[in-house]
């Protein structure tokens, strides 16, 4: 009996140890970025595991750079526009794919799924040409356009999944009343789909906020960069003297909103990820 008790205690301790290690593994890097960002540059090269100084000079350095502020502004503009466009196009497409039975529906679904698996670099040269032809090179417009390639497919996919789950009776009543499809969509479905739209919008926002390859390729000047590119291109006097303090401060600034969003909306995000199994 005591042996069994001992064994269960050992198992409990082992379990909590495992939980502790996993949590530490997940959050330590971000924690360490915060620790580093709060150090004065003189102490930067002494390794410390705890916040032992509250020095905001790195934040002041970063936030007083006009290019970094411009990058934040560009990222916000691009991400919000991408969310709006993806939701608008995704919602109409999801109604057609989720509520109507017609020839070619499966083909359209396969096209959408196929596009979500495109390697971005495969469309890089073609997209570069399109963007230059439309005179959108080195502007947020070019990024908004190009980001549809990865936000639209998963928006359509997730919204279609949610649209399917709504009961038929709703739409039957609207059809009997002679409502047009557009009215049905905006007056009947949209109010019910707000949670799903919030989820997909959030995922699209995160995807657009984090994108790097297109932003690096389709912008040229510092004033048009987005946040990931701005951080990747922060450089010091030489390749070997990167200003780690400001880099970590910038990293914390652009990540904190995302972490807050994720912690608040974790349930929604999980349901969206599992419904669409979008890329991580």
């Amino acid at each position: 009996m005591t042996l069994r008790r001992l064994k269960s205690i050992a198992l409990t301790i082992g379990f909590w140890l495992l939980v502790g290690v996993l949590v530490l593994y997940a959050i330590f890097p971000f924690y360490y970025a915060i620790v580093t960002s709060l150090k004065p540059s003189s102490q930067l090269f002494e390794v410390s595991y705890w916040v032992d100084s509250l020095d905001f000079s790195n934040y002041v350095t970063v936030l007083s750079q006009p290019t970094f502020l411009a990058a934040i502004r560009n990222s916000v503009i691009v991400a919000l526009s991408v969310v709006l466009i993806a939701l608008l196009l995704g919602l109409t497409a999801a109604w057609a794919l989720g509520r109507v039975r017609f020839r070619g529906r499966t083909t359209v679904m396969m096209i959408v799924l196929g596009v979500s698996m495109f390697p971005q670099v495969a469309v890089l040269s073609g997209l570069f040409e399109v963007i230059r032809t439309l005179d959108l090179y080195n502007s947020p417009g070019g990024l908004i356009l190009s980001y549809t390639i990865f936000t639209l497919p998963f928006t359509v996919w997730i919204l279609t999944t949610f649209m399917r789950q709504l009961p038929d009776e709703l739409e039957e009543a609207a059809i009997v009343d002679g409502a047009s499809p557009w009215v049905t969509l905006t007056k009947v479905f949209m109010p019910l789909l707000w949670p799903a739209m919030a989820t997909t919008g959030l995922l699209a926002f995160i995807a657009a906020w984090n994108e790097f390859l297109f932003a690096l390729t389709f912008t040229l000047t510092d004033s048009q960069r987005t946040v990931p590119v701005a951080i990747a291109l922060i450089s010091g006097g030489s390749q070997y003297e990167l200003p780690w303090g400001p880099i970590m401060a910038a990293s914390v600034i652009v990540t904190v909103p995302l972490v807050v969003l994720v912690v608040i909306f974790q349930r929604r995000i999980v349901s969206g990820l599992t419904a669409g199994a979008v890329k991580g």
Partner: peptide, 24 residues
Amino acid sequence: AAWLFLTPMLIGLALVAGWPLART
């Protein structure tokens, strides 16, 4: 209506995925 509603998405995908891929 379904096809009408799908058109904007399909045009979007053609512009950013189909055509650029063909050009590549």
